[in-house]
Design a protein around this nucleic acid. Sequence first.
DNA 1: GTTGAGCGTT
Length: 402
Amino acid sequence: MADNSPRDEPKTEDDAKSPLDEVKDIRKEAELTQTGSAVKQVADPEFITVQDPTGEEPIELPTDDGSVLMTTLQASFPGATGLKYKNPKTGANRAVQVDPSGLRLLAPADGWEDKTFNVIIASQSERVRALSSADATSAKRRKVGSSDDSDSDDGRDGRSGRKRAVERDSQPVDLIVLGVDFKTGDECFQKYFEEIGTVVFCEIKRKSDGSSKGFGFVRMASVGEQNKVLAIPQHMIDGRRCDVKVPDGRDKQGRPSISRIFVVFGDEAKVYVETAVVTDVFIPKPFRGFAFVTLSSAEAAESIVSYSKGSLTVNGLSVGLSIAQPREENQPFGPDYGLPAGYRNRRDRERPERRINQNESHSPLPMPFVRQDFGGYRQQPQQQNSPLDRRYWPTGDSNRQW
DNA sequence: GTTGAGCGTT
């Protein structure tokens, strides 16, 4: 199982690079490291040409041992399940064969050359399943990368408390893998993640009779590798699409593995949507473990939530996120700060479900994170320069705790 | 024997 692949922590870039560049680096790294074992180095990998369905320029994907890794494909085309190309003789589309494990796209009989491939994407209905919330609107895919890559284990600056905190929060955690096929065996499961990095632990949860419960856990050797895993929007394990995320609840140290703090996206939002701009950040005071980030468009917000699948790692800290719900006019239980955002799963059951007003004139998408025009908030009068300096304040009672 | 949102007898 755990083969010792080289550490890939000491990255001495940062600072100068834009988030987009960093994501590209992550992808590149993921593509080059994915042989689990001693990095079978592709000195001069062959590339195949794939048409980008969003109409942008074609993308060249590297081959690995003559085949294309599904992870490579999906890193560039979230939701992709395969490739096809036009057969010049018949004019029909030919699908590229996928190996039984679902990990590799096998070369056509006459090779990868002289062809332009098109991406096969899961059908709309199937894709909806992958989206985190009730936003069936965006069929647009985008190239996304990881959010994070924040983990810097650079050992400068001595033993500050801050440094220790960083170390503590930079340990990889067991990631939960949802949607594992019931027939998928441990070996195949493990092999899948070893294509991405070094696996130090993995397990498919089973019932007493040995049958799979359909989910499992995997722990990568480093935060960097963990981020690579989390950066892949759609995992295809043994032919089934799976979600991999930081689990809710507690990790093995008993620390909350998701701290529902907020997400300062800043320019990092562009990692997800190139046009995304953070227009506001609101942190309730006193600190309540969450915050709101307003983006320039509903689409931007939606994309970030969808592609992150509700959890991101920001500066080594896991955060949950989702589309913020507006407060309802008559809130019987007092202000709830539009909370349910990050609060999915178990917690949802503990609170009455809150829905957007069935106002058909609204965009089908719930809302961007926070809007200044909905019932619970108003904007502070003065306008500052930095978006980060602006804050929302509750209407009415100014003594309300924020 | 089926299933498909979820959160783990370490």
